[in-house]
Computed example of a mutant assay.
Amino acid sequence: MTRSRKARFALILGGLTAFGPLSVDMYLPALPAMTTGLRTDDATLQLTLAGFIVGLAVGQLVAGPLSDAHGRRKPLLVGVGLFIVASALCALSPSAELLIVARVLQAFGAATGMVIARATVRDLFSGIAMTRFFSMLMLVTGLAPILAPVLGGQVLTLTSWRGIFGALTVFGALLLVVAAFALPESLPASARRPARVGAVARTYLGLLRDRLFLGYALACGLAFAAMFTYISGSSFVLQGVYGLTPQQYSLVFGGGALGLVLAGQVNGRIVGRFRERSLLLTGLTAGTLGSLGLLAAATLDLGLAGLLPPLFVTVSSLGLVMPNATSLALADHPQTAGAASALLGVLQFIIGGVASPLVGFAGESSAVPMAAIMASFGLLALLSYGTLARRRVALAARLA
């Protein structure tokens, strides 16, 4: 595959993977305005987020096996079409109840794009080439969850909250056109598997019993949860506690995003010289040490000068964790890449969904709660890799 074709595929598949983060985070700055505009309360409006997370999880579990059975292209186009229609319904919803239904449908469409994007990479690449391509995807997917709230805030300066869902509708329509003309079928008919309920259930049970897959998936999901915690709490901590202006906060936020993307590109260049497992362990260790340093700086009240360097390390470390963990998790499952991709995504968003409200529950008057939660997820990610994946790999090496 030529370099230009790889870059084109990376943009398309990265855009599909970004459906979830953009749909979750872009409208968060608009929640207060939506409460007023829809004449509802905060608790009811929070169901639009909960419904999306549930729809995203269920949608991935359904879309993965369907793509293993019917190929990647047809389910993908149907899913993106559903995303477009549901996003338009969100923009036009006259009530919170209809918005909740539209958000669930939007999640099903987003889930299809996310699952099939990862499965397509597994169809097209293997080994180091697959890890390098996932690193290339970090140019798009790494920025999406970090910049989405900023983009949502900018859209709000130009229009109402409905404009955010209008922007998502346009984004989906553009991706549908590009995918229809530029993304070929990657799963030949001979490699497809029937999507019978019993067979699908056995596939998922087999993946959950695979300690190696589960170790990589949990390490990835827990590290991603630390990022969710940062996204949820950083604006309160950096602006409310440390007094940054919105512009200064955007610079700090953008600096972390730049570090994450650069780490992903470095990973793609050195993965041939270093094993994926070594790079994954390096990323997990850096993220854990960074979050522990963040906790120490917050506890000792070292100010922004002590807080920002470990925060940068923690965010940037995902550039090593995400591509290597994803590649290693999918490597042994070429025949069920859709189902494996689905389970990988479900674990990420379930754990991340749990992480998001924890900062608010723990308190936002200090950086300590955010740092402590991030450090906890970092330690759990490292522990998951060490107890499930690393030991299994070491045992296999001894037996060989």
Rank of each mutant, 00 (worst) to 15 (best):
R5N: 14
A10Y: 04
L11S: 12
T17C: 14
L31Q: 06
L31I: 12
T35G: 14
L47Q: 14
V58P: 02
G59E: 01
R73T: 02
L76V: 09
L77W: 01
V85S: 05
A88K: 09
A91M: 09
P94I: 11
A96T: 05
E97M: 14
E97H: 15
L98H: 15
L99I: 10
G109Y: 06
G109S: 01
G109Q: 01
A111E: 10
I116M: 06
A117M: 04
V121G: 05
V121E: 02
D123T: 04
F125H: 07
F125K: 10
G127A: 08
T131Y: 01
F133Y: 10
S135L: 03
M138W: 02
G152P: 00
G153A: 03
Q154R: 13
T157R: 15
I164C: 06
A167Y: 14
F171Q: 09
A173N: 01
L187Y: 12
A189N: 11
R192E: 02
R193D: 13
R193Y: 12
P194G: 02
A195L: 11
V197C: 15
G198H: 10
R209W: 11
R211W: 12
L212C: 01
F213S: 06
G215N: 03
G215R: 00
S234T: 06
S234F: 11
F236W: 03
Q248D: 08
Y249P: 00
S250D: 10
F253I: 07
F253C: 11
L260V: 10
G264C: 05
R269L: 12
R269I: 11
I270P: 02
S278T: 13
T282K: 00
G290H: 08
L292M: 02
L294F: 11
A305L: 06
G306M: 07
G306F: 07
G319K: 01
A331K: 14
D332S: 11
A337V: 11
G338E: 07
G345Y: 04
Q348K: 09
I350S: 01
I351A: 08
G360M: 02
A367P: 05
P369M: 11
F377T: 04
L388W: 05
R390D: 10
A400T: 13
